[in-house]
Simulated assay, not measured.
Amino acid sequence: MSVTEMFSYIQGFLSADQDIREDIRKVVQILEQTAREILTVLQSVHQPSGFKEIPTKCAKARELFCTVRTEIADLKTKFPVEQYYRFHEHWRFVLQRLAFLAAFVVYLESETLVTREEVAQILGIEVVREKGFHLDVEDYLAGVLIMASELSRLAVNSVTAGDYNRPLRISNFINELDSGFRLLNLKNDPLRKRYDGLKYDVKKIEEVVYDLSIRGLAKESESAGDK
């Protein structure tokens, strides 16, 4: 093979690779748009009247996850299955955002931590790497940490809405989450940096709870709950 033929072959390879990346980007753009739509729906729970609409908003979000599953099914066809990690960076960010949104929906519904398996089911993907398009542990954990920041905001807005008991429940949940992350030996730099932000979320929520306790609102809320 001559030098010219060799580089012509390489150019063909690069062109084919670029076509794959372009196809992937198109699907990822739709996923990003859908993620924004889901977030817009869920953001309304931060409004004073939003707490009463949590079940409705969660149901609407789950409907939009149907679009996510359809687009991810399309995304799976855009690249050779064995080259998942070669193109992973194209969808890593949006997958983390979708994991966060799934975790937030589950928390709003049941005030529990979503499992990695549940997130994968909501997104229509696998957990086991060997089965194909899957949810990495790191992407799942990143989504959970994004949710923690969202919950710290919810704790503050709960007080504005007159729901004084919710920050206490959020505080207990976030403290358990923090304890869980402390068990992990995180060496992934981006994930480690995101985890470092969790201590600020914990502090922010603790300040809200402390303020409620000082003002006696937390006790009043608990008494009302007991009645």
Rank of each mutant, 00 (worst) to 15 (best):
T4R: 14
S15M: 14
D19N: 12
I20F: 05
R21M: 11
E22H: 14
I24G: 01
E32A: 07
T34W: 05
A35E: 02
E37N: 10
V41W: 00
V45I: 15
H46M: 08
G50L: 01
K60A: 15
C66W: 07
V68P: 06
A73F: 07
D74H: 10
L75Y: 01
F79V: 13
V81Y: 01
Q83T: 09
Q83D: 14
V94I: 09
L95H: 07
Q96H: 00
R97H: 05
F100R: 01
L101W: 03
A102H: 03
L108P: 03
L108V: 03
E117I: 07
E117T: 12
G124R: 10
E130D: 13
L135P: 09
L141T: 03
A142I: 01
V144P: 01
I146V: 07
L154R: 06
N157E: 08
S158C: 04
S158G: 05
V159K: 09
T160W: 05
D163S: 05
R166V: 06
L168D: 03
I170L: 06
I174W: 03
I174V: 14
L177H: 02
L177V: 04
D178N: 13
G180Q: 08
R182P: 00
P190H: 12
L191A: 04
Y195P: 00
Y195L: 11
D196L: 09
E206P: 03
V208F: 13
V209S: 09
Y210N: 03
Y210Q: 05
D211P: 04
L212S: 07
S213Y: 06
G216I: 02
G216C: 02
E222C: 06
A224Y: 08
K227Q: 12
K227R: 15
